[in-house]
Write a protein that binds this DNA or RNA. Structure first.
Lengths: 216, 216
DNA sequence: AACTGTGAACGGGTTCACAGCC
DNA sequence: GGCTGTGAACCCGTTCACAGTT
């Protein structure tokens, strides 16, 4: 067993493995081979085995992996066996969509505080969440021990909010605002930009069109 | 000038370049060097130049790039100089957030049809969009010439919807449902899974905790 | 002098080939 | 026979070093 540092690419696939294993467990499947699991996900079996080799040895040669066991190992590694506390900043349409998103709860995340800067929203209750003043973030974060912050504000507010998040001592940020945030090195950032995904599709569409035009 | 096939990794960065350049153009900046632009984005200057080298030669040695010109070239390559038509499937909370998302319009995407399967929603108007029956997708798609479909349905409906999208002849899909869709090879798929991003952050958080526990 | 464009070197990630185990 | 775990080979993407341009 080698146990080198888990490569970034592997880390980004672990949640996908967990998702698939959870589904299989729910359906009552007991064991799974690397090729079976890989097929369901749409990757090569060797890649799956290599990924798992970075985090341990969970399989039985000639048999495969125990579904429950492997799921538990991955969830444990992801640190989602205990519930993680999430602060959501921005109670606009995207923020509301995130509040209602079942996937968070299922995967072990709990939105425990919601902030906004709009006085018209602060103090109201949206989908069961009491909306708090963004300026209270630091106070609330220390009281409630927030693990992760999610930025769902308009672009213009995102950098200010990010700075407040850092001041509040939160080190893990998921940002939906389409802007490159400036953050200290020890803060972990994931960026989701909805428009970028469409633009990537647009590129391949344009490329296909160019190819067609060229050939005819 | 070489013009090999543009690497996947480069394609995924082009929208980021476009976003930054658009901002600079709006602020009235005329030219930019590779190191300046790279710094704003948070990458190395050599990577930016290498990326651009795949798509052409747009710079002037000793000077840099013309902001407007480079922006136009990238937008052209992305095929977003003409407006692209998007069909949104699923008018739930996420769907509504997407309808209201300014970034799509700004980047040249237009939500031109919205579908749902809920009889209570079909026929109503949400944020100015007439909600149509998902079973009319094929008809509407051929009438309105849809370029890209966005799946914002519950997980359970996603595969069925995806199949309908393919039947409607749409070849570019952005999927928000947390499921591995089975699609023909010639269909282009991008996947955004909100929970996965949080789980990746959770991994690094758990890793940091493990490291702490070990040392103390 | 300042900056671009690119071959070459490097490094991380994927795939192959196979040894070892059930 | 069927399957896992893994070194080695391979491939792709990033970075370096520098030749070439204004």
């Amino acid at each position: 067993m080698k146990l080198k540092k888990t490569p970034r690419a592997t880390v980004e696939r672990l949640p996908i493995y967990a998702r698939c294993l959870a589904l299989m467990a729910k359906r009552g499947l007991r064991t799974v081979s690397s090729s079976d699991l890989a097929d369901r996900i749409g990757i090569k079996a060797t890649q799956l085995r290599k990924d798992l080799s970075y985090i341990g040895e969970f399989g039985t040669p000639g048999v495969g992996y125990d579904v429950e066991e492997l799921l538990w190992q991955i969830q444990n590694l992801l640190g989602v066996t205990k519930e993680l506390k999430v602060a959501l900043i921005g109670a606009g349409r995207l923020g509301q969509a995130l509040m209602g998103y079942q996937g968070f709860k299922e995967k072990g995340f709990r939105i425990i505080a919601v902030f906004d800067s709009d006085p018209g929203k602060i103090g109201t209750i949206v989908q069961g969440h009491h909306i708090e003043d963004i300026n209270d973030l630091e106070k609330v974060a220390s009281e409630k021990h927030i693990d992760i912050a999610v930025i769902a504000t308009p672009t213009g507010a995102a950098q200010t909010v990010a700075t407040q998040i850092v001041l509040a001592g939160i080190k893990y940020i998921l940002n939906f605002a389409p802007i490159a945030l400036i953050l200290p090195d020890d803060v972990n950032l994931r960026q989701v930009d909805l428009a970028i995904e469409l633009q990537i599709l647009a590129f391949y569409r344009a490329e296909a069109e160019r190819k067609r035009d060229q050939q005819d």
